[in-house]
């Protein structure tokens, strides 16, 4: 057991975790942030993507103890009350959601991308999102959603 301190979506947590607990499991099962999903458990699908200290990471292959002192953002922190983020709005508008299982991970990868690069090219989008598998949409609408979100944020003048 170790005691860890971290913030999730701006809220402070102090928590006892076992050494071998995975961050994704702690987020989902202890803190009930079930938005992040487990699609593979091995860093290969991106469904568990959260943002840790500003960077998109696959939380299924990170120990909870490694998150000590970090600042974590999950899909649950992307909307405030009835207000959803530009990225979320863009995903809806572009019909980039089918079953929705990959969606939280996609949105978090998109957020990390736009935070560091407000006007991404197709190639930038491919690099940032190719670790997020979607089996439903064929990705076309997702790419459009990322671009639309960038426009909403004022990144692209086109």
């Amino acid at each position: 057991m170790k005691t860890i301190n971290f913030t999730v979506n701006g809220r402070n947590y102090k928590l006892d975790v076992k050494d071998n607990e995975i961050l994704l499991d702690v987020l989902r099962e202890k803190l009930h942030f079930t938005g992040a999903k487990e699609g593979c458990g091995e860093g290969e699908c991106g469904a568990c993507t959260v943002i840790m200290d500003g960077k998109a990471v696959t939380s299924c292959i990170i120990l909870a103890v490694e998150a000590d002192g970090s600042d974590i953002e999950t899909i649950e922190g992307q909307s405030v009350g009835e207000e959803i983020s530009d990225i979320q709005e863009a995903f809806i508008e572009e019909n980039a959601i089918q079953c929705g299982f990959c969606t939280p991970g996609m949105v978090m990868s998109t957020k990390a991308l736009l935070d560091r690069n407000p006007d991404p090219s197709d190639e930038d989008i491919d690099i940032a999102l190719s670790g997020n598998i979607c089996r439903c949409t064929g990705y076309y609408s997702i790419r459009n959603a990322v671009k639309r979100a960038a426009e909403k944020k004022g990144g692209s003048q086109s």
């Binding site: 649950e76 992307q78 809806i92 929705g100 939280p104």
Partner: peptide, 15 residues
């Protein structure tokens, strides 16, 4: 627009 898109995009949809 697709039904339940909001629940899915906010992570609220429970599988």
């Amino acid at each position: 627009k697709r039904i339940k898109a909001l629940e899915k995009v906010t992570g609220n949809a429970k599988f």
